[in-house]
Structure formats: structure tokens, C-alpha cells
Amino acid sequence: MEVPQALRQVFDSFPLKTYPSITASTSSQLEVLEARKFYFTSSSKTTSLAKSSSIILGINNVVEYRDIILPSDPVSLSQCLIICHKNGLKLPLATRKGITDENASNCLMTLSHQAAPDSQLPILIEDNKKNDGGEPIRSLIPSYSIVNSNKKDLSDSSDILINDMMDTKLIDLWLTCLMVDPNVNPPVLSKIFTLESFPSVTSSLSGLYISALLQDIPRWRSYEIRHSNLFRNSKLKDTITSVVRKSDNSALQAFYIHQLSEVRDLLELISDYVLESDCMILKMKLTGFLLSVDLILYDTELGKIIKQCSYLEKAYSNI
């Protein structure tokens, strides 16, 4: 069908111009992102795989210990130590923050837990570089897949059993501690999670974030589903503020006391087992749990138990 002359004239005279594509990130955005990154240092033991791919471990926050940067929560710290051990990388140093070189593309990055698809960190973001120099393929591995992948490296049936127990009992206890321990207050939460990004003037925004965080914590690792008896009145309690929720949860508090008494005996047994075993995964998991509690949650009931653990000294020497 022929285009009418009048229309042809309009479209022919329309000024056609090709604009350049809008960049995904501006220089200021990149600066903010860079400030959240803590690069692993490479060593002679660094694997070629670690050099060719870029690994970003998305974590809640970091804590500094003797110039070393460590993730603030037990799961992220354990996974960070396992990644370092597997790839021959060294933990990030506070003195080398922001420094990038050819071999330093693997890093920790602080994120909001809402950045993860299931609202729980850590997440692993991998950029696999193409051989032909094209754009790297980015993949995102969620928290549960990272934790499950540890099982593949375990061959001994007892090690698998202990690993499973540490993943459930110890991490469940850490979550319960965050929900019910009276010494877990906003300043402590701000050490574990990235809350300092909120300006001090908007403290109400920070309060809202903490409230949302406390609502999300029971959902992590299906805690709320696995212990549904503890959240029997959750619909009613959803309407109550997080502060009231904390003081009202008698079932959770009873469960916390039970978990503490259980872990008091269990930690010594696990420590003895890990000391005798040559399984690196178990060593790193126990180290991650003990350090993250001892460095941040030291005032809590859980922290007091950890202080007495015989493996704590060894855990510090492991890093």
C-alpha cells in the first residue's frame, strides 16, 4: 500500500537523531558501590579460577578485627572463610580498602538484606568472564544454595551429619538470639546489618527499617515454618510493634532458654570433634559462628556461653 504524499513528507522531514545509550551507573553511584566493597587479597596460593572469575559475596555488614575485615553474621563469615580457603584468597584488610588491582576483583560487598531474592544474605554474585572478551555472564546464588553446596565437599557420613546440625541448631540459636535477647538493641543490630547508610536525622526511617528487619528475621532459613508452634499468634502479633513483640513472645523466650542449655553442652562436643577432624568446612563453620557472636553479640546470653568455649582461641587463630 502506498503511503500518502502528505504523510511521507511529515515523516521524511522529522529530525531523526540517534542518542547514545544511558549508562547504567553514574560516577557517584560507582563511588557509593565502591565504598561498600572490601577486596580479598590474592596470594601465591590463589587458584587460577579465582583469578579468571569475579566473586562478590553480598553480606549484611562488616566488622573490623585487628585490621582484618570480617562479615558480621555467622553464615556470611563461615562462607567467606570457606571461599577464601577454597580459592587461596586472604581476608580483606582495612588498610587496603578500595584498592583494586588486576587480581583483586573478588570482594565482599555490604548490602541490604532486601537485595536478596529471598530477603536473606549472604548471596554470591559471580561474573564469569568469556574467553572471547565479551560481556561477562553474571549469576546469582542465593543463601540456601551456598550453604547446601558445602555438602558436596563432605565425604564422611559423620561430617555431613555434624555439618547439618551446625547449620540448623547453631544458626537457629543465632536467629532466636536476635529476636528475643534483651541485649540485642538497635545499636547492636546496626553492627550486624547495614543501618548506618540511613542519615542520623532520619532516625524514624532507621526505626522503620529495623521494624521491617525484625519482621523478616523469622522467615530466614524457614525458621517460622519449622518452628510454627512458636509463632502461633503471629497474625495478631504482626499488628503489634516490634518492641512489644519482643517482650510478648513467651514461647520464643522459653525456646531460647532451651536452645542455650542445649548448645552449652553441644559446643564442647562439637569443638572436640572439630579439633580431632581434618574437615575444613566444619572448622570454618565453627570459627564463623564463634567469632561473629564473640565480636558483636558478646553481651547476650549466647555471647556469655561462647566466651567459655574452648575452641574460641583456636577460632581467632584460624583467621
Partner: peptide
């Protein structure tokens, strides 16, 4: 107390 026994209880329950 036996660690494997506790771990088995945890594994079976979960």
C-alpha cells in the same frame, strides 16, 4: 552425651 546421637536426633527431626 554423644555428639553423633545429638546430630542424628537433629537430622531425623529436620
Amino acid at each position: 552425651n554423644n555428639l553423633i546421637e545429638f546430630a542424628l536426633i537433629s537430622y531425623i527431626t529436620e
